[in-house]
């Protein structure tokens, strides 16, 4: 996928952490970011450019996720049957996509596959829903740890299984935006 520019990365990171951030707040953060290394000093950050960074950053992430899902031949169709449920599911999927998460069904392995956009690595990490074994538990927990930390979510107080952790993480991300 196309890499995010430094300014886009700062804006998107802030949106991931606090989805309700206003453009003014984003502009302020962009101005103060990393000792103004990103942008030239003494240059004011106007709201229009912040809005552009936001939309371009989101577009790059969205396109990257959908392209990878297509390459993996995942089924992205909605699973709800009634119009009300379908609308609800559409809204949840939209929120997840905005937060760099895409879920699809892999017909070959008969399992749900989650694609996460990791800001730090600027790449997409694919993870399949499964009951972890000792040999993969570290990898799975590290992926979910990255996802939670980039979205500013604290670690859960209780020890959870990875499948439950992904469920809770997604619910928390959706709940912050609604």
């Amino acid at each position: 996928m196309k890499k995010l520019s430094d300014s886009e990365l700062i804006v998107i990171r802030e949106i991931f952490r606090r989805p309700s951030s206003t453009l003014n707040e984003l502009a302020e953060i962009l101005e103060n970011a990393e000792n103004r290394q990103v942008r030239k000093p003494n240059k004011a950050v106007d709201l229009r450019s912040v809005s552009k960074f936001k939309s371009v950053g989101n577009k790059k992430i969205r396109e990257g996720l959908i392209k990878l899902a297509t390459d993996f031949r995942l089924d992205l169709s909605l699973q709800a049957d009634t119009p009300e449920e379908k609308k609800e599911e559409e809204e949840v999927n939209e929120i997840l996509l905005r937060n760099g998460i895409l879920k699809g069904f892999d017909f070959r392995s008969n399992a749900m596959v989650y694609l996460f956009f990791a800001l730090k690595e600027q790449s997409i990490l694919p993870w399949q829903a499964h009951k972890c074994r000792p040999q993969c538990e570290t990898d799975c927990k590290s992926i979910l740890g990255t996802l939670r930390s980039e979205h500013g979510l604290p670690s859960p107080n209780i020890q959870l299984e990875v499948l439950d952790l992904i469920d809770i993480t997604i619910k928390e991300i959706v709940a912050r935006e609604t």
Binding site: D71, S77, V113, I124, Q128, H130, C136
Partner: peptide
């Protein structure tokens, strides 16, 4: 397909989904 990243957990057989699959 060879350029695709590895799916974590793809080498472990997952439990079959209990919900029916809707295809459109």
């Amino acid at each position: 397909m060879s350029d695709l990243p590895h799916i974590v957990g793809s080498d472990i057989p997952p439990s079959p989904p209990d919900k029916p699959r809707i295809i459109r």
